[in-house]
Design a protein around this nucleic acid. Structure first.
Lengths: 157, 157
DNA sequence: GCTAAATGCTTGAGGACGCAAGTACATTCC
DNA sequence: GGAATGTACTTGCGTCCTCAAGCATTTAGC
């Protein structure tokens, strides 16, 4: 299945559409969230991830897989959010290497304020633009891309 | 159509899948291109865009819409690529404000070398993972997202 | 034709992020 | 039980990118 065959028109269109859609949607959502709520998308995602964890807490390594950052990125983002009082670090009693990040009440409030803005953005720019069938197909396709890149990463890394 | 209704499971799955797929695919492609060819994805995209323009040249403002960067990002990327000799600036005789960026022979060679790596990556991690039907549906969906965010941008900006 | 506004690009300043190296702790294996 | 290895996070450094402001040039309005 000649892996070197150039992309045909259809394939090229799909690839470009994927890139363009992501770039535009993310820029828009980020801009809205920053101007209306003073929160970056990454910060929002991190707070949201914490809010759904038991005890509103998670280890750094857990956050790494939920937010789309490397470990060092998570460390710095948590630094920043801790400085804002939205999050607090706690050492793990069992294993002194691990650090828990806990969502503070202030952080939860902040998240709740930002939630509506973000929800509206995601609905308006993404979810509500897709029909039921499309939603299913896109989800299946995207999940396949994510899975495969995941396993391939292990090979290379 | 209550814009404030929380995302249901299906909608949330689609949104997360989109984010995850993009993050993983891009990281993988970028890593492959950088380690195997010493070229960032942005640099590749810019060279590729130029190679398809008449006379292998384009104005900065044209590049801005093709690559996914702001004007200042394009200026800096072109600076870098010009330093590497892959690209050359030329002033426009008609309008002294505009600057053309021209792909040099060296740049074309570099692009041709990187092409196979990039093509293989896009096939392996994206295009060849999707069936014909999926490809069509995804393209349609992504184009709709891109269009809409485009028009909405004008409203806000 | 001269000022005012618009256009096209660049620059300065600052922030975000990744990689690779570093630190601290835990576990494994003689 | 002590060295070697592994794990969890952090830090130093460099890169890239954006926003806002700045130039230079062109176009519009009068």
């Amino acid at each position: 299945m000649a892996a070197h065959r150039p992309l045909n028109r259809r394939e090229m269109a799909a690839w470009r559409a994927f890139l363009t859609a992501h770039a535009r949607v993310m820029r828009k959502l980020e801009a809205e969230l920053v101007t209306e709520e003073g929160l970056s998308l990454a910060a929002y995602e991190l707070l949201a991830a914490l809010s759904e964890m038991p005890d509103r807490r998670a280890r750094m390594s857990e956050l790494t897989s939920l937010v789309f950052l490397t470990p060092s990125g998570v460390t710095r983002l948590v630094d920043k959010l801790a400085g804002d009082g939205f999050v607090r670090r706690e050492r793990c009693t069992g294993d002194a290497r691990v650090v828990y990040t806990v969502l503070t009440d202030q952080g939860l409030t902040r998240l709740e304020e930002a939630y509506l803005t973000h929800l509206r953005g995601v609905r308006e720019h993404v979810v509500d633009r897709l029909g039921r069938e499309e939603l299913e197909t896109v989800t299946a396709a995207m999940n396949r891309l994510a899975e495969i890149c995941d396993t391939t990463l292990e090979d290379t890394a």
